[in-house]
Amino acid sequence: MNARKYVDRCLMELFNNGMRVTEQRKRMLSLVANSKHPQTAMELYRKMKRTFPGLSYETIYLNLKLFMDLRFIETILLGNEVRYRALPAVHAPLVQYICMDCKKAIQVSFDPSHPAFPMPEQFKSVNYKLDIFGYCRDCCDRGGSPAVQ
C-alpha cells in the first residue's frame, strides 16, 4: 500500500464528510500507514506525544474509533494487546503473517478462488480476513523462537 495515497484518501474522506482535518489526524494516519507492524494505542500515543506535547490519551482513542468507523483502520488482537493497522481502499486478496515477537506483518497475495483450505460448495465468499501468527526469520535467527524452515 502506498502510504501517501492512503493518507490523502483518508483525509479527503474526512473533509468530504464534513469532519476536521487536523495535524494530529494527519500524523496519526501517517504513523499507521508507514508502520511495518500493527500499532497499539499506547505506541501511537508515545509517538504522537513527541510532536504534540499537550495531546491526551483520550484523543488517541477517539480518533482510533473514528478511523475504525470510517474503515480506515482495523484491529487485531495479538497476545493480550489490541493493535491497529491500515485498511487499503480496495481489499486485495492478502494473507498477513504476523510475528508474535517483533509484531512485523508480512503480506502475501493469494487467489481466494483457489484457497489452500476447504470451502463449502454452497458458499460464495465476498470478503475475508486471514491473519496467521508465528515467528519471522529475524526473530528466529536471534534465538528467541523456533527456527523458520
Rank of each mutant, 00 (worst) to 15 (best):
F52H: 13
L66T: 14
Y97P: 00
R27G: 00
M12L: 12
G54T: 14
Q122C: 01
V148L: 00
I73E: 05
Q24I: 12
G143P: 03
D138C: 03
C136G: 03
E121Y: 05
A105S: 14
N63E: 07
F133Y: 15
S145A: 11
E23K: 13
K47Q: 14
Y97C: 01
K104T: 10
M1A: 13
D8Y: 11
I60G: 04
I106G: 00
A92V: 11
G134N: 11
P118H: 11
F110I: 07
L94Q: 09
A147R: 15
A3R: 11
L77S: 13
N16V: 08
Q24F: 10
N63I: 02
G18Q: 10
R4F: 12
Q39T: 06
S145Q: 09
M68D: 07
T51I: 09
D131G: 10
F117P: 03
N127Y: 06
H114Q: 12
F110Q: 01
K103M: 05
N34R: 14
Q122V: 04
C139Y: 10
E13L: 13
D101E: 03
M28C: 01
I132A: 15
R85W: 10
L14M: 15
Y61R: 14
K5W: 04
Q107K: 13
K65G: 03
R25M: 02
M100L: 08
P120Q: 07
E23R: 11
K5H: 09
P88M: 05
N17W: 03
R27S: 06
F67W: 13
L70V: 05
A33K: 08
K47M: 09
M42K: 15
M28P: 04
R46G: 01
R20L: 02
V32Q: 02
Y6A: 11
K65P: 00
C102H: 07
L77V: 15
Y84M: 01
N16W: 05
G134W: 01
M1Y: 11
N80R: 14
L64I: 14
P93R: 00
C136P: 09
N80C: 02
N127I: 07
C102S: 00
D8T: 13
V21W: 01
L87G: 00
D101C: 03
L78M: 15
M42F: 05
H37W: 08
K124V: 15
A92G: 07
Q149P: 14
Y97I: 09
Q122Y: 09
V7W: 05
Q24C: 02
R25I: 04
A116R: 02
F52E: 07
N63H: 15
M19L: 15
P38T: 03
R9M: 04
K103T: 13
T59Q: 11
V148A: 04
R20T: 09
Y97D: 01
G18F: 08
